[in-house]
Design a protein around this nucleic acid. Structure first.
Lengths: 151, 151
DNA sequence: TTATTTATCTTAGTTAATAAGATATTTGTA
DNA sequence: TACAAATATCTTATTAACTAAGATAAATAA
């Protein structure tokens, strides 16, 4: 029955979201971060250098909170502040990718290996289905988030 | 190329985890909770009533923090404290499922509809693949979390 | 030049966490 | 039975990270 499938996938998604959150917090803790700091460090790593203001907008923290965030990262030498050359008010937050990787990679290694193994256990056609499902889910969640934030 | 698939799925998973987190925080904010309170309320709802100590163990907060958590929920009349009948030291936290649903359901409605629509767009066989992938991923993440916590 | 705007930082106050100890109840033992 | 130890939760003091509002410094516009 179709309804049953929908219910099961929904439950699985809930578990997935919750479990993923728990895992990331456990990883953060092991690396000596809070869950939020870890989250934003990952974000910064993925997006690459940006100004404090951009980061504040993108993650939805006040500029004051972002100042504190950068301070904590800077103290650990994971990012550097770099004043803009054309506009000296701007502060670019430059992640030290190598250093961050050095810190985080070992903690993710086990997860990466097991995930890669799991992925490899599916055929190419099956992987396409999974990719399609995941990417469409991401789009839906982005949409919902944007709608909620604009209210 | 297989390596490429693995990399793409990994990237998708990262996006999925991050986006899901952002969405849940946006939903929490709209409902008037912090991200963590929302997370633990969902946990309580799913698991059903339990004692303060059990909750503390399961979510990894100190008992003091759990007291505060319950206080906040109780103030909003979303849970009730109920002393154990056989062991009067115990405090059962009883979620008011109906009231919690009333508060959260409208915020999830849009997401649920769109997700159901997405699920329905796949065939039964395809859904089985997705289910398999998601449930195995959850198992992996639980394993990793447990390993990290035990260190 | 001077006023306004922009980008970040600082300060004060709030919230929610931890750690340690208090309180209340139960369990084990002489 | 009495009393020590263990258990379950709560309380208090302290800390960390957030927001809001305003300060500072630099860029832009009149």
């Amino acid at each position: 029955m179709e309804e049953e499938h929908i219910r099961r996938i929904r439950k699985l998604n809930q578990s997935y979201a919750y479990t993923s959150l728990q895992m990331h917090e456990a990883i953060a803790g092991t690396a000596g971060f809070s869950g939020t700091d870890h989250k934003y460090l990952g974000f910064l790593l993925e997006r690459g250098q940006m100004t404090a203001g951009e980061l504040s907008n993108l993650i939805g923290l006040t500029t004051g909170a972002v100042t504190g965030l950068i301070d904590r990262f800077e103290k650990k030498k994971l990012v550097k502040r770099q004043h803009g050359e054309d506009d000296r008010r701007k502060v670019f937050i430059v992640p030290d990718t190598e250093k961050i990787m050095e810190l985080l990679a070992p903690l993710y290694q086990d997860f990466r290996n097991k995930s890669a193994e799991l992925t490899a256990s599916f055929s190419n056609d099956e992987i396409k289905i999974i990719e399609s499902y995941l990417s469409k889910s991401v789009e839906i969640m982005k949409e919902i988030t944007a709608t909620l934030r604009s209210k």
